[in-house]
Design a binder for these strands. Structure first.
Length: 207
DNA sequence: AACATGATCAACT
DNA sequence: GTTGATCATGTTT
């Protein structure tokens, strides 16, 4: 396997998170994913980016969670056991990727909202039709587009050599900011958005 | 009718 | 530079 390295990050499948990580409490997973690296291999190329912003969507008391309406064709992946992908299409234009959490039947996930591109920037730029590194994976729609995720990728395992989350940066509690979630109208008062304080790759929210 | 968004453009500091 | 209006567009309710 070709050695690939960038910003002190080196792909190492032995450091991939296993199912047990994703099957924890959703808030724990959402916070825990910050600083870790999303790795996807497509057509023998690696795309990698450090996760800097997430949102939790909870199985109980969260009307904004897609699973709150019960199991449907669209949200079916959310009811599987944690550790797989849930991708949905939104506003007729964008895809958003989520990592399913907790146990089978629960209905919850973590939305990946932004990441710091590390490797495969050339391919991400082509996918995005944009060369601005700062913005390649800024925002859930942009992130999914940079990585080439679509609804066809629903149910994909996040514990495979072609798609996994690699342990990387350790955060202090002070490094993580917690706020209300973005772009929702139900259960909007819940503080379930998390991001790394000093990252310039987090989405800029306008009030 | 609403939607877990983003690009663009006009008008303003 | 920033801010706010507008729009693109498919799927779900």
């Amino acid at each position: 396997m070709k050695i690939v390295e960038k910003n002190n990050f080196k792909i190492d499948y032995s450091k991939a998170l296993n199912e047990n990580f994703f099957r924890q409490d959703t808030k724990t997973v959402a916070k825990g994913l910050l600083g870790k690296v999303l790795v996807r291999k497509i057509r023998n190329n690696y795309l990698t980016a450090k996760i800097v912003e997430t949102e939790a969507y909870l199985p109980d008391g969260d009307l904004s969670c897609h699973a709150a309406v019960g199991k449907t064709q669209r949200n079916a992946p959310m009811f599987e056991a944690g550790g797989i992908l849930y991708v949905y299409f939104i506003y007729g234009v964008h895809h958003c990727i989520n990592i399913v959490t907790e146990l089978e039947g629960k209905g919850c996930a973590v939305l990946i909202r932004a990441a710091e591109p590390l490797m495969g920037l050339d391919i991400m730029s082509v996918n995005r039709k944009n060369n601005d590194v700062n913005k390649l994976c800024k925002g859930p729609g942009n992130l999914a587009k940079a990585f080439g995720f679509t609804v066809k990728d629903n149910f994909l395992s996040l514990c495979s050599k072609n798609l996994f989350i690699q342990d990387f940066q350790k955060n202090n509690k002070n490094d993580i900011i917690t706020t209300k979630r973005v772009g929702i109208n139900k259960s909007k008062e819940l503080l379930l958005r998390y991001y790394l304080k000093d990252s310039s790759f987090v989405t800029n929210i306008k009030k």
